[in-house]
Amino acid sequence: MRNRLAGIVLISLLASHAAAHAQTTPPANEILRRVRGEFERIDDYRADVHIVARIPRVNVPPMDATVYYKKPDRFHIEAKGFAMLPRDAISFNPMLFTEEMYDAVVQGEEIVDGIRCHKVKLLAKSDTLRLQRAMLFVDPTRWIVLRMAADPARGSSADIRFTYAFIQNRWLLPSRVVIEIDAGPTARLPNKPGAPALGDDEKESQHSRIVMTYTNYSVNKGIPDSVFSPEHSP
């Protein structure tokens, strides 16, 4: 009798825990809807970006560029001299994470920068999308993506961490983005004829790290469409 009672208590405890978890973790599409909702308030922005890149076998000086964004998915980059910016980070746009474009599923929780985040797995519905697979780590209080593990159709997979700042006390936008890219870019560079190919251990150590710092945001001030015309594209 005592054993049966203990079993009932245990089962009810587990059931209540599961129910509580189900209540705190919304469905994946609801999470994405809330993330989009935060970003939806931004019609356009312009920001200066300072880029410091450490890429094996590629030496680039610190670079400066200006990024323009206009709803829903238009980006334009300008650089006085030259700048190279990680594709998956610079064109990060939660507005694209829609039910029409991606299948989404919640895959538990994980702590990112001290915050317990919802893990949302995205799978592209079309093979024409650049971002084919991604794992988003969403802050459940502010509904922003703190981390994204991106697996694009072309190029190398990247782990992107976002730090946000309140712009004019109204909009949460990235202030610092750190991107870790797998060995990809360097592995494709030409080797001297006869030189030995890179070993697996060497490839493992060939990670790229790019830090982008955003400043001078100008949000919802209106950007003319001509800025995004093909003649202005990099």
Binding site: V58, I77, A79, M84, D88, I90, S156, G184, L189, P234
Partner: peptide
């Protein structure tokens, strides 16, 4: 070309 798969290039 190898880099342009992962990076957007701006400038000349």
């Amino acid at each position: 070309a190898g880099l342009q798969k992962d990076f957007l290039f701006a400038g000349n």
